[in-house]
């Protein structure tokens, strides 16, 4: 039995927007990413699998317990959720907030304090335990959010844009912490950063306009959709021509030629011969961001 299964999830908001359409997920231990641009339905999907938003149709099973059925308490006990902007009582301290979250999850006050201490030490915030949350930096708050999501020791950790707003160093530290301390669990996160997903996820669900359009391991997806590097050319005016039978992909003012049959010199020569003015040409290595472009013709972010 998979740890987390979602079938046929659908959500339409009162505005008429269908945020999520027929999404299926199946996840076991590892690090899973929902990757897509803003508005692709990632947050809505995470909200539905954590129980904070009821789907119009579909089901969510957590270790066999239905999120919306008779086993809803057991299902929620197995999940720790850190939304993008984790709500804390800003006038209370880091420890106060962890105790509060512990009580929400039926831990006693003593157990909450004990777990709080463990987690604050694990995330490197023990020295800041008596500091009001309003006085913590963004990176510290993200780490506190992870601690709060783990207070009841869940098997599944769900993080919505965990590194959003963090500088590269803080992001590295956060992921290093997650992987070393809790990498043996199921971690589900959402991101619009292809590089982050590529580096840390073992499985990816690519979302676009409310649907899962592809899934798999990052390397496998890159091999499938971008086995070779591409040359990206910025052409402010006009259009890029077909060169030796190879038609470019267009994304805005950028045109991409696969370097499977052409070389950069071939491309530059052909553009000059054709009188096409370009301002930049660069080699783009295979990446999930490029996979997204290949699948949708749109940028990831």
């Amino acid at each position: 039995m998979s740890l987390l299964v979602a079938r046929g999830l659908r959500k339409k908001y009162p505005t008429g927007v269908v945020a999520v359409e027929n999404v299926d997920l199946e996840m076991d231990r590892g690090i899973y990413a929902l990757m897509g641009p803003n508005g692709s339905g990632k947050t809505t999907t995470l909200s539905m699998i954590t129980g904070s938003l009821k789907p119009d149709s579909g089901e969510v099973l957590v270790k066999g317990y239905s999120m919306w059925g008779g086993g809803w308490v057991e299902a929620r006990k197995l999940i720790g959720f850190a939304p993008q902007d984790m709500p804390f009582y800003k006038h209370l301290t880091a420890m106060n907030n962890l105790v509060y979250y512990g009580l929400l999850h039926s831990l006693s006050i003593f157990e909450s304090k004990r777990r709080g201490r463990e987690l604050l030490e694990a995330v490197g915030l023990w020295e800041a335990r008596n500091r009001q949350v309003s006085k913590l930096s963004g990176g510290m708050r993200r780490r506190l959010a992870i601690a709060a999501a783990l207070i009841h020791d869940p098997e599944i950790l769900v993080l919505d844009e965990p590194a959003s707003g963090l500088d590269p160093k803080a992001r590295e530290e956060l992921w290093s912490l997650l992987i070393t301390q809790w990498g043996d669990r199921l971690i589900v996160f959402s991101s619009h950063d292809g590089e982050e997903v590529e580096r840390f996820a073992t499985q990816v669900y690519i979302m676009h306009r409310g649907r899962v359009i592809e899934k798999g391991e990052p390397e496998e997806l890159k091999k499938r959709y971008m086995p070779h590097p591409k040359a990206a050319v910025l052409i402010p005016e006009g259009e890029a021509p077909t060169i030796d039978g190879v038609e470019p992909e267009r994304v805005g003012m950028m045109y991409r030629y696969p370097l499977e049959k052409l070389t950069v010199e071939d491309i530059v020569h052909a553009l000059r011969e054709g009188g096409v003015k370009f301002t930049r040409i660069e080699v783009v290595e295979p990446s999930l961001s490029e996979v997204f472009i290949s699948l949708t013709g749109e940028r990831l972010s």
Binding site: T50, S52, V73, E74, R76, F81, L104, H105, S106
Partner: peptide
């Protein structure tokens, strides 16, 4: 409005 409702709904608290 403070975002706490989302977290409470995802907890086992009725």
């Amino acid at each position: 409005q403070e975002g706490l409702l989302k977290v409470i709904l995802s907890s086992p608290m009725s």
